[in-house]
């Protein structure tokens, strides 16, 4: 009897695992199956045509990559510096550290749509307005949604990811190295930049990649900070709007007037986005695993 109960228990938990993996398999299989039907070189390199029923999605790929690049330029350096501050300068038992650390942790769980609101309220309505007043005598340039503000919003969103990952790896660098360096008469700064950071390099990379992967997939924060459904030209100025893969998927899925005509293109777009984010995630996981092995040694 006990054996039977045991068996049932193990089998049930195994079943749950199989169900989850099956769902994953169905989703990925569905996307891969339909997504590759219309996938072609042209699809990746050409602009959309005839009301999104033909052509490609190059502007959306371009916009997403540009967005993510701008975002990393802001999020990675600031994130790394905050992590250095947390791991090397802040006193872990101080109240200041505990509170700020908790704020960062908490930020990681704030809904992305709230970041969208923040981007609109802070970057577009406040900073943008201030710039326009100061440099463009009130003409509407920066006080409207744009790729710059979308990227900044995304940067704030991904900041905790960078901070948390980098801080963890900095803390994983053994104290021995810091002591050896200081005992040789190096300053703290020299120790951080010559000994500690080079060893935490993989953590910085992982943090950056995870941030990019998150940034590439999030749509809610760019809904009203800069993404547009269709633009005849690629963005060339920070105040330009941009096309975005995730945003494109949302519009194609929910607002298409001719579902059957746009469906193949939609699937291919989904496929491209999924491949992009998976590649980024897998790279991050690989770096992390290599780092763990290295740390054990």
């Amino acid at each position: 009897m006990r054996k039977f109960v045991d068996r049932t228990f193990v089998v049930l938990s195994l079943a749950a695992t199989v169900i989850i993996l099956a769902i994953l398999f169905v989703i990925i299989g569905n996307i891969a199956y339909h997504g590759t039907e219309r996938l072609s070189w042209e699809f990746i390199t050409a602009a959309p045509e005839s009301g999104m029923t033909a052509g490609g999605i190059f502007p959306a790929i371009y916009g997403t990559v540009l967005l993510v690049l701008l975002m990393s330029l802001a999020a990675v350096p600031f994130g790394v510096l905050v992590a250095i501050y947390f791991a090397e300068y802040a006193r872990p038992e101080s109240r200041l550290y505990r509170w700020t650390r908790m704020a960062v942790n908490n930020l990681a769980g704030v809904p992305s749509i709230v970041f969208g609101l923040f981007g609109l309220g802070f970057f577009v309505q406040s900073i943008g307005k201030a710039i326009d007043r100061a440099a463009y005598s009130g003409r509407l340039v920066y006080a409207q949604p744009s790729i710059l503000w979308a990227a900044m919003t995304m940067a704030v969103l991904t900041l905790p990811v960078v901070i948390i990952t980098v801080e963890e790896t900095l803390r994983a660098v053994p104290r021995d190295y810091r002591e050896a360096s200081l005992a040789l008469g190096a300053t703290k700064l020299q120790t951080i930049f010559r000994v500690v950071l080079p060893q935490a390099w993989s953590g910085v990379m992982t943090g950056a990649i995870l941030a990019i992967s998150r940034g590439a997939g999030e749509v809610a924060p760019v809904l009203f900070t800069g993404a547009a459904y269709f633009l005849p030209r690629l963005p060339s100025h920070p105040a330009d709007q941009f096309m975005h893969l995730g945003y494109h998927i949302w519009v194609l899925t929910t607002q298409s007037t001719n579902v059957e005509a746009t469906k193949p293109l939609l699937y291919s777009t989904v496929f491209v986005l999924v491949v992009l984010t998976f590649l980024l995630n897998i790279t991050a996981i690989l770096i992390r695993n290599r780092m763990r092995k290295w740390a054990v040694r």
Partner: peptide
């Protein structure tokens, strides 16, 4: 006042760079 630690702790760099480290930072 130099210090040698219980566990040998060369930096993960080349032997040359290890020895040169102190000279460089100072």
């Amino acid at each position: 006042v130099g210090m040698i630690f219980q566990k040998s702790n060369p930096f993960p760099m080349s032997s040359y760079d290890n020895v040169a480290y102190g000279v460089r930072v100072n």
